[in-house]
Nucleic acid binder design. Structure first.
Length: 577
RNA sequence: GCGCCUGUAGCUCAGUUGGAUAGAGCAACGGACUUCUAAUCCGUAGGUCACAGGUUCGAAUCCUGUCAGGCGUACCA
């Protein structure tokens, strides 16, 4: 049974959501779910609906609010306030976490939580620090995340960097929620462009030997090709001076592709992105996979010949037109290779596959989904995340990204100038389908413009508190603190902080459901903002030993959650700043 | 022409699958350091959610149309 990873109630995204019973949200949800069965008419309902708990902006509306009664009105054809009161009347608060429950407005149910109920969250984090927010299960579904997959014809640019950060973090998030994740990079090392690449190097090499050849149009004329030509000359001398292009081409192509790919790997390594598998398109050709895939589809009736070409019937699954897989000249198309590639993915046992593509490939989505469905898979088995383009700016002015001249700012240059952490953080702070302005001056400024430092600073600050505590001889062992002390954490700010910590697992689930990492930076900002404010108004190390222990526990949980969230982002959590 | 994405504060962006009085950062203005890190905190101001209709108890969110920007519309990859 294929696993749909975005379904709200599907496992393992939310299954066993938290390890302990500390999670207030969970207990509330199951309480409501039970109560629903007592609501008149509910059992005969066919519609499925999920229980959504909102955190109201206004504190008068409680700690959590549910609009479940409003959602049921339509189905039950009954007054929402009436439904709400039935739900409330049947709540079984066995753990006694509810201070009071109110029905408000058109039929919202507002839950007010007893302060003591929140303290379980602290215990949970203290016990599971590094695992908090994660789901440890035996054998989660196998998921593949394929990303970057830039052609080995030039160095990575900033747009690839955005895709790299997003793919990497999505893989982290999926892994955190129990999926068995593989990170894969698809190397487009076959086809015309590789010949073009080889020819580009060949001409540069001949020029390097002092020949006055003219460099052909529509070839890779980036500066990196000049360096490659120099290196090639260094290692091969002039031994290819007389070799005709056709004969020499494979050598030049392989040399260029390999060297460029090495560069890509190095850049990704510096960026903190590491792949489990590098899948070469050439291997697809070697095992005749494309022809076999076409035959596979032919047997299923999705292949036909027309106008001398071979077509795939993608319109059978909603694509606007059928697509050519073998051209009239006998060459297979890129799409044919991609069909074979995706068939291979599923044959490798992945239950779900995530592709991260540049948004300029959106026209390609439907045919790929059609391909997947023709394999007998569902549309949901392949999830394509489109990443919008990055506009590179410096001090508000656009940086010329001329592809014509082959001159562009590489990812490597950006990382060198801005730093890995800030670069990743900025990439991850926007929704994937939203275009991103990346201003180099803003990104590298050690200023308030830069949210990454705001977050990292909080972590360093917290570490510093524990440092000072040690220096003052304050003993603290998160594992052996008496929970009785938590009752002293009764300030509004403290309860808000604990509540926010408690939302961490839910937030990660939301990332999985939507395949959007940007919730993490926003969550972090909110958590850290609460902390900075609290830190300003209160002292953690006080004269009162019991209070100090309680606050150190709170500080510890905040520090751990910041650390966990930053780890998901692949951003370092500094001890000092 | 057709298709997809985007349009929310001066700027950059959130808004959890239709919810209560529209959110944050930056910029602007005014305040707070003898303390565990001021890379911090507190406050003020800032809005016709591009526009016009529609759906309903309720719309930034869903539908239709218009406008603006980006991308895509290959027997390229």
């Amino acid at each position: 049974m294929p696993v749909v990873i975005y379904m709200r109630d599907s496992n393992p995204v939310r299954e066993g959501f938290s390890n302990g019973m500390g999670n207030v949200r969970n207990r509330l949800e199951s309480m409501i779910a039970e109560s629903l069965h007592s609501v008149a008419g509910y059992k005969d309902l066919k519609a499925e609906l999920s229980i959504e708990l909102d955190i109201p902006r206004i504190s008068d509306h409680g700690d959590y609010a549910s609009n479940i009664a409003l959602g049921l009105t339509r189905h039950l054809k009954r007054n929402p306030r009436q439904i709400a009161s039935e739900i409330v009347a049947n709540l079984n608060d066995s753990d006694s976490i509810l201070e009071k429950v109110e029905i408000a407005g058109p039929g919202f149910i507002n839950f007010f939580i007893k302060p003591a109920a929140w303290y379980g969250i602290i215990r949970e984090v203290l016990d599971n620090a590094k695992k908090y927010g994660r789901l440890e299960i035996q054998r989660g579904p196998k998921v593949q995340v394929e990303f970057v997959s830039a052609n080995p014809t030039g160095p990575l640019h900033i747009g690839h960097g955005r895709g790299a950060a997003i793919g990497d973090v999505l893989a982290n998030i999926l892994a955190a929620r129990g999926f068995q994740v593989q990170r894969e990079y698809y190397i487009n090392d076959a086809g015309n462009q590789m010949d073009t690449l080889g020819r580009s190097l060949y001409f540069r090499y001949r020029q390097e030997l002092g020949e006055g050849l003219e460099f052909p149009d529509n070839h890779y004329r980036g500066e990196y090709m000049l360096d490659l030509a120099k290196d090639f000359k260094r290692s091969h001398g002039d031994s290819f001076r007389k070799t005709p292009l056709e004969e020499a081409l494979p050598v030049f192509t392989d040399y260029a592709a390999e060297r460029i790919l090495d560069g890509i790997k190095e850049d990704l390594d510096i960026f903190g992105v590491h792949f489990d598998n590098w899948f070469s398109e050439r291997d697809l050709h070697k095992i005749d996979s494309i022809a076999k895939t076409i035959e596979y589809f032919r047997e299923r009736g999705f292949i036909y010949e027309s106008e001398g070409a071979v077509w795939f019937k993608s319109t059978a699954f909603g694509d606007e037109k059928d697509r050519v897989v073998v051209r009239a000249n006998g060459a297979s198309t890129y799409f044919a290779a991609d069909l074979a590639y995706h068939r291979d993915k599923f044959e490798r046992g992945f239950e779900s596959v995530v592709d991260i593509w540049g948004a300029d490939h959106h026209g390609y989505v439907e045919r790929m989904l059609a391909g997947v469905q023709a394999m007998g898979r569902t549309r949901d088995d392949l999830r394509i995340v489109l990443v919008q383009l990055v506009n590179l700016l410096r001090g508000g002015a656009p940086v010329a990204m001329s592809t014509r001249g082959g001159e562009f700012v590489t990812l490597r240059e950006v990382i060198d100038e801005v730093g890995k952490d800030a670069t990743r953080f900025i990439f991850l702070t926007r929704r994937t389908d939203s275009p991103l302005d990346f201003d180099l001056e803003v990104a590298k400024a050690r200023s308030n413009d830069n949210p990454v430092f705001y977050v990292q600073y909080a972590h360093a600050r917290l570490c510093s508190v524990f440092e000072v505590a040690r220096d003052r001889g304050v003993e603290f062992d998160p594992g052996s603190v008496n929970d009785e002390a938590f009752r002293l954490l009764n300030l509004r700010q403290e309860l808000d902080l604990i509540k926010q910590v408690g939302e961490f697992p839910e937030m990660v689930c939301e990332c999985v459901r939507s395949l959007e990492p940007h919730y993490i930076p926003y969550y972090l900002h909110q958590l850290v903002s609460l902390f900075h404010s609290y830190y300003h108004d209160n002292r953690i190390l006080t004269e009162d030993a019991e209070l100090t222990q309680a606050r150190l526990c709170l500080a510890w949980t905040i520090k751990e959650v910041i650390g966990n969230a930053l780890e998901l982002l692949g951003v370092t959590a500094p001890q000092k700043m």
